Simulated scan of single mutants.
Amino acid sequence: MGWLVTAVVVAAAGLGVWLFNRLVSDRNQVGASWSDVDVQLQRRHDLIPNLVEIVKGYAGHERTVLERVVAERNAMHEAQRITDKGAHEPALKKSLSGLVALAEAYPDLKASTHFMQLSAQLAEVENNLQYARRFYNGSVRQYNTRRDQFPDLLVARLFSFQQGEFFAAEADSRSAPGVMR
């Protein structure tokens, strides 16, 4: 009878360790996938000053558009939390759309090889960012689901696993900024 109790205790401990390790793995996947989103955000932020400088050369008097893009870029760059970055995302996308739309009013700008290259890079970054966001949110969904399901929730509560935050965009920012090719 003593060996049966020992076997049950060992099995329960083994299950607890397995559940804990699975939750840690999911939490680490959330962190790694957020890093991928952050890399794409940084790539986009690095392109913005170059775009602003090119547009300045062709449309210097469009100062409000240029200042708004720079201000939104800086605000999002300074945001630390995932939800704060998500809150700044719509304004930055809107500002970028306005900047790229200036190309329509300035045919020389639209024809500029450097502007076209930067626009293509921006389009690529936006596509990569969309993929990274989807992957991140999928990782958060999996982690949160496991964290809230029985028997994982027992381990999650015992070790204070916090719920993951989704990266959500505002309704009007769900599409990528318009980019000229």
Rank of each mutant, 00 (worst) to 15 (best):
V125P: 00
A168P: 11
A13W: 07
A101V: 10
W18R: 15
I54C: 09
S25N: 10
D152L: 04
L118I: 08
K56G: 00
Q142H: 07
E67Y: 00
D148F: 04
D84T: 02
A169F: 01
A59N: 06
D84W: 00
D26I: 04
R81D: 15
E53D: 15
Q162A: 15
A105Q: 11
N21Y: 02
E67D: 15
N144V: 13
V24W: 05
Q80C: 03
R157F: 01
V5C: 05
N50F: 02
S25H: 09
V9L: 11
D84I: 03
R147E: 08
D38F: 05
A87L: 08
L19T: 12
D108Q: 14
G31F: 03
S97F: 01
A75H: 03
G31K: 12
A168W: 02
D148Q: 14
A103M: 10
N128Y: 03
Q149W: 03
A79M: 03
V155E: 04
V30N: 06
R44E: 07
Q42L: 08
L4C: 05
V70F: 00
N74V: 00
L19C: 13
A103C: 10
F166Y: 10
S33Y: 07
A103F: 03
A123E: 07
D152M: 11
L47V: 14
H77Y: 05
Q162T: 15
Y58V: 13
L19H: 08
R134M: 12
M180D: 07
E126P: 15
E53F: 01
V5E: 07
G138E: 13
R44V: 08
N21V: 14
R27D: 03
L41N: 09
